[in-house]
């Protein structure tokens, strides 16, 4: 019961941090607010007894904060003062309302909080230590029972690094440099 109260406090904190992130003008402050939301999320995972995901959340949050600060600290960004597109605001509101309505019907069929109805996870908990030998059941699921998924994630990472290298590679040829310079003048 106390865990639920703590989780609600953390959720309210996360909503406030997200609103500050969207509304604040200074870019660095917005990035720091994103970091506060991420650390609150990792605290929520910790209170839900999921230390694996909490560790991953903290570490990835630090990495993304470093990259975001590095990317945004030198860039002059122009704040949008006027809001001319009223139609797009209305469209966004209509779609958010539709998502909320359908989510209300969809969430009716979900099990209540903290009571999993899955038989598969029960099987992992009962037989994981005997069949795999790992005392950390999360690892035994992601690297033994569901190793295909992990292989797929590794391939996704591989593809993304290939794409990043193709797009962000160092410009070596003189022709490319000239092309870049011409492109900047226009």
């Amino acid at each position: 019961m106390e865990t639920i109260i703590i989780l609600h406090i953390i959720l309210v904190f996360m909503i406030i941090g997200s609103l500050i992130t969207v509304e604040i003008r200074n870019m660095l402050s917005a990035v720091i607010s994103v970091g506060a939301v991420g650390f609150a999320l990792s605290l929520a995972f910790l209170f839900l007894d999921a230390p694996d995901i909490a560790i991953t959340q903290v570490i990835v949050e630090i990495l993304s904060l470093v990259i975001l600060i590095r990317a945004t600290i030198k860039v002059d960004n122009v704040a949008i003062e006027k809001r001319e597109h009223i139609l797009s605001d209305r469209t966004a509101l209509i779609f958010v309302g539709m998502i909320l309505v359908f989510a209300w019907f969809a969430f009716q069929s979900l099990p209540t909080f903290g009571e999993p109805s899955m038989r598969v996870s029960q099987y992992y908990l009962m037989n994981g230590l005997r069949e795999v030998g790992a005392t950390n059941f999360v690892t035994s699921v992601i690297l033994d029972y569901r190793a295909y998924d992990t292989l797929g994630e590794a391939m996704v990472l591989f593809t993304s690094i290939s794409g990043a290298f193709v797009i962000l590679r160092r410009w070596k040829k003189e022709q490319d440099k000239d092309f870049l310079r011409i492109d900047r003048e226009h």
């Binding site: 909490a54 570490i59 950390n136």
Partner: peptide, 14 residues
């Protein structure tokens, strides 16, 4: 990673 919380992904990011 197979005994205590953790694993390849958090350690790699670290």
């Amino acid at each position: 990673g197979h005994i205590t919380p953790g694993g390849g992904f958090p350690g790699g990011v670290m």
